[in-house]
Design a protein around this nucleic acid. Structure first.
Lengths: 150, 150
DNA sequence: TTCGCTGCAAAGGGTTTGCATATTG
DNA sequence: CAATATGCAAACCCTTTGCAGCGAA
C-alpha cells in the first residue's frame, strides 16, 4: 500500500531528505488508479508548487520505482505510466481512439487494474529453450465505454 | 508466413516500387526468430548496401507493420523489436543481465516466440469497467540459459 | 517521364544528466 | 555545516520528417 508518509519516513531512515516537492509527488500518487504519466504528476503538483521542475518529478519517480514503491508500466511506444499498486496484478488497456482538438486521432490508452493473476500459465518444455521461468504479465486489450461508440 | 518475394509483389500491385533496399530488408527479416531491432536490420543490410540509410530501414519497417506483414514488439523502454511471425502468439523474455565491454550491466533482453495462446483468459464482470474485451497478450519472464549462471 | 524512393540532416518526444544554487537535517 | 535536492538547460536515444536528387516502372 502506497502511503506518502511511510515513504517520507523511509527517506529519513536512509539519510535522504524530505522536501516539499517529494512529499507532494508522493501525495499525488497515493491511491491513484489512473496510471498517470510523469507529465500528469507534474501538472498535479504544479497546482501547488508552480515552479517545480519536470526533471525533479522524473528523478523522484525513478527513485520510487527503484525502491519498489511504484510500478512503471510501459505499453507500446507511449510514455511510462506509473502505478502505486505494486502487488502482482494485470492490466486492461483501451485500444480505441479519441478525436483530438484538431480532429486528429489519438490513442485512448485508458488503463485499468485487474486483480486477477495467472500464476499457473505455463510454457511447454520444448518452447522454454532452457529458460528458467519466473512469471508472466498479462495485458488485456479492449475498448473502454467511451471508445465503443466512436 | 513472411516471404520477401510475396511482399515485393504486393508492392507492385499497389503501385509502389521494389527497390534493392526494400528487398534486402525483407530478406533480412524472412524467417528470423531473433526479434531484431531496426538497428540490427540496418547492420545486416549494410553488409550488402553499405550506404543504406537508417531512415530507410525505419520507413520500410513502419510500412510492413502498417500493412500487417510484421509485428512490432515493445517491451519496457527498449527500442522496438520486430517479428515476421504475425499469427497470435506469446513471448518469453529474458530479464537477466549481461556484462558489457566496459564492465557495465546491460539487460539481456533475449526474446523467444511461444506458440501457445490463451484465448480463454477472462476478466470478471466487475473488473471489466464496461470495457469490450478483444484479446490479451501474455509476456513470460525468465532467465535464458546464458543468464542463469551470472 | 513520372512518381515514388532514397539519403541526409534536422527535428521530435520522452527521459536523463551536469552543474550551480538552494534547502534539509 | 555538510550533504542532499532542486531547477535549468543541455544532452540523449530512438524514431520520424522534410526535402533535393535519384531511380524504378
Amino acid at each position: 500500500m502506497f502511503i506518502a508518509e511511510d515513504i517520507c519516513q523511509k527517506l529519513r531512515e536512509n539519510g535522504k531528505k524530505v522536501t516539499p516537492q517529494r512529499r507532494l509527488i508522493y501525495k499525488a500518487l497515493e491511491g491513484k488508479t489512473t496510471h498517470p504519466t510523469a507529465e500528469d504528476i507534474y501538472n498535479d503538483v504544479r497546482a501547488v508548487i508552480p515552479d517545480i521542475s519536470l526533471a525533479t518529478v522524473y528523478k523522484t519517480l525513478r527513485e520510487l520505482v527503484e525502491s519498489r514503491f511504484l510500478l512503471e508500466i510501459q505499453v507500446d511506444g507511449d510514455s511510462s505510466r506509473f502505478d502505486p499498486r505494486t502487488d502482482p496484478h494485470s492490466h486492461l488497456k483501451c485500444i480505441g481512439f479519441k478525436v483530438g482538438t484538431n480532429g486528429e486521432y489519438l490513442p485512448c490508452g485508458r488503463l485499468e487494474d485487474i486483480s486477477t493473476t495467472y500464476p499457473t500459465l505455463h510454457v511447454s518444455p520444448e518452447e522454454l529453450h532452457g529458460y528458467k521461468l519466473i512469471g508472466n504479465e498479462v495485458m488485456f486489450l479492449g475498448y473502454c465505454p467511451a471508445c465503443q461508440n466512436s
